[in-house]
Amino acid sequence: MASTAPLAEQSLDQPLVARPANLWRDTLRNLLGQRSAQAGLVLLGVVLLMAVAAPILATHGETTNMLDAGETRATGAVRNAAPCIHLLGCAASKSQHILGLDSNLRDEYSRVIYASRVSLEVGFFTVGIAIIIGTVLGAIAGYAGGWADNLVMRVMDVLLAFPALVLAIAIVTVLGPSLINAQIAVAIVGIPVYARVMRASVLSIRERDFVTASRALGASSYDILLRRILPNALTPLIVQGTLGIAGAILDVAALSFLGLGSQPPAADWGSMIGDARNVVFVAPWLVLAPGAAIAIMVLGFNLLGDGLRDALDPRLNR
């Protein structure tokens, strides 16, 4: 051995890094070094803060009618009341409502804050379900091949053949309108995307040299699927999932807008826009505020997803 070791030292391509490489730390560092990911994380941080600190940030209850809270017409408790901010010159006799009141005399600002919780939960739950089912189906299709592949993928094709929202509406109509059913519907609609991503990954990764090499060293199919293929397929799944959260939130919001998702009196950005659609010219803030909130969140997830796509490529690690 003594004879080969010094030679080997010379043939090293790269100097040893000071700290041993760590995939997750490298990924995090790559992620934090990117503009789009930084912006995405800031936007999502805002939403997360809203959700976590909602009771502190909100000035009123989520569902409290201002008449019940002791306000009167005289203090400005009217339907679709305009924003009243004392600092900006709103009369001191009126009570302060940063984003005004909605048609049920509830504080719009507080509702926007509380609704962030719904949207976050909707995003993660919906995409979580879709990813889990989609990944399993895609793995089966890609790894088993043959009739199993055909069966799974033809069902996915059928799901994909319908416009997503139309299909979701149909599913909710069958299940009955409620937030949870809206999420299930959107999750079902999302499954084919993840199944396809996973199947494609399995098909390409199973042909890679390292899979043959691990087989030659005695790995079982189970080992191959779980320890070789899945970890390598994770990158596109995570990226797709992050981007998918944005879409899922929009879809559930759309269902809520149509009255098929979140049910009154709970606050949800989608249904808030839906409720205010008739007064969009009279009280545009009632549409703009939850609309902006959705935009921030969707943009945040999209930017983060783009950043993740680049950061998770191990070849980019330095």
Partner: peptide
């Protein structure tokens, strides 16, 4: 396999799991 008979391949870098 890997226990009594092993095999190595032409492309060493791609024979290792990248992740």
């Amino acid at each position: 396999r890997g226990n009594r008979i092993s095999m190595i391949f032409q492309q060493p870098t791609s024979s290792l799991n990248p992740v």
